[in-house]
Design a protein around this nucleic acid. Structure first.
Length: 424
RNA sequence: GGAGAGGUGACAGAGUGGCCGAAUGUGCCUGACUCGAAAUCAGGUGUACCCUCACGGGUACCGGGGGUUCGAAUCCCUCCCUCUCCGCCA
């Protein structure tokens, strides 16, 4: 939710900022609705005040007295009128609230213009994509892949996009998650293990609802949603709370499986581990003082990038253009890892500053130096998403015989140097 | 899942139809006393929204939603949550 004062006082600025994003919303209609809502409130409250003061007088009268009975008769009409006006006020407030939820967060001034991913800027890159020789192949073509990553059995169990990992691959995933959590906690993030299902209020606070309902799995019987990312439960950790200003920033990391319906995805994008309905991810979330959120985004991005360097995987970081950033985002970096076998970049992290947008929806505040309650700023980023890191690892580190050399940080954890030796 | 007890301000805890945004205590802030502190005394101390240039005024909020009534923290319905006991269960 954007700042209502800003919307009223500088509608032109909001209009043009929103215009840079790809989400349609009618600012003028919302402003008009706001005006109607306010006059409805004023009218209803004026009448209600009259009713209340009359009731005060009645309290002083003797219950059965003639004056009292007469007064009751008079007040009946007023009570009915008040009820009417309050109902109209309620309706207007409800549609006003729904309309407000359709306004996306405003892109930060440092976010470049642009409509598609073509317009994203390469902010940084590390490692040499050409280091790998020509024998690199897509991870799904490794000779042992179908043995340790069971796509067909997963399909039988749940459906397409639910791989079953076996043996060394299962263990590699566990080691990656452990590596991510160890690094992040060492960087000052407190580990959290959140619920994997959330209610509608939580999904609304982070911006999944009402904008992206179709992307989440819905548990109809209980009205709950499977989380598309740990961002959702974790950001709601402090919903409706007032944070200790001196203790900011709050920094949290959380491992969780993530569930995404990703309806409408086709083609090569979905082969192998590139895009699946359930995957593992470690997420970073920060609650920060508004003055520091710019700097906190840079350090968040750095925290995610460092993991790829330790895994010795080439990556590049994109500064996303206004047309390509998400609904609640003010600024967003995507980190992409090089997958040598597919000769393409795979997104493994998205680091974002939501400014006060989520905090306002989640009602997470702090008391500033003047004693005023203000929304905090929230940020989050993947560190990292497992399957695509896995894909890059398999493709970049595969040798001619199909075995895959592990980078030192994983070698130490797993106690083996390679994976993928065929059994026969 | 069954039975019972509860959900009131930062916390504890009164309040069973009107004088209750809510006693009292604690905490916190300010002032007095003091060389200073403690103790004591006095005053203050919620949030959101609406009207107003402002001073200020108003409305709402006693777990959520709905109802009864001229009037609801208080009565009714419903849902949620917490605690105790029982059942079931990884």
């Amino acid at each position: 939710m954007i700042d209502l004062k800003l919307l009223r006082e500088e509608p032109d600025r909001v209009r043009s900022a929103v215009g840079r994003k790809k989400f349609g919303c009618d600012i003028d209609a919302i402003l008009e609705l706001d005006a109607r809502r306010r006059s409805a409130i004023a009218e209803a409250e004026r009448l209600r005040a009259g009713q209340k003061s009359a009731n005060q007088e009645m309290a002083a009268l003797r219950k059965g007295s003639p004056e009292f009975v007469k007064k009751v008769g008079e007040m009946k009409a007023l009570a009915a009128r008040v009820k009417e006006l309050q109902a109209r006020q309620g309706e207007l407030e409800e549609s006003w609230r729904r309309a407000l939820l359709t306004i996306p967060n405003l892109p930060d001034a440092s976010v470049p213009d642009g409509d598609t991913e073509e317009d994203n800027l390469v902010h940084a890159s590390w490692g040499d994509p050409n280091r790998v020789s020509g024998e690199a192949r897509p991870h799904w073509d490794l000779p042992w892949f179908r043995e340790l990553v069971n796509l067909d059995r997963g399909t039988r169990i749940a459906g397409a996009g639910f791989p079953v990992f076996a043996g060394e691959m299962a263990r590699l995933i566990r080691s990656l998650v452990d590596f991510f959590l160890a690094e992040n906690t060492a960087a000052g993030y407190t580990e959290l293990q959140p619920p994997l299902l959330v209610n509608a209020d939580s999904a609304t606070a982070t911006g999944q609802l009402p904008d992206k309902e179709g992307q989440m799995y819905h548990v109809a019987g209980d009205g709950l949603y499977l989380i598309p990312t740990a961002e959702v439960p974790v950001t709601n950790f402090y919903r409706d709370e007032i944070l200790e200003a001196d203790a900011l920033p709050y920094k949290v990391c959380a491992y969780s499986p993530c569930f995404r319906r990703e309806a409408g995805s086709h083609g090569k994008d979905v082969r192998g581990l590139n895009r699946v309905h359930q995957f593992d991810k470690v997420e970073l979330v920060k609650w920060v003082h508004p003055e520091h959120s710019d700097a906190e985004l840079e350090s968040l991005r750095e925290d995610a990038e460092r993991l790829l360097r330790k895994l010795e995987l080439p990556y590049r970081t994109l500064l996303m253009c206004a047309g390509d950033i998400g609904f609640p985002h003010a600024k967003q970096y995507d980190i992409e890892v090089w997958a040598a076998g597919q000769q393409r970049w795979l997104e493994v992290s998205s680091c974002s500053n939501f400014t006060d947008f989520q905090a306002r929806r989640a009602n997470t505040r702090f008391r500033d130096a003047t004693g005023t309650l203000r929304p905090v700023h929230t940020l989050n980023g993947s560190a990292l998403a497992v399957p695509r890191v896995l894909a890059a690892l398999l493709e970049n580190n595969a040798r001619a015989d199909g075995t895959v050399a592990l980078p030192p940080v994983l070698r130490d954890r797993m106690g083996i140097e390679t994976i993928g030796k065929l059994r026969s």
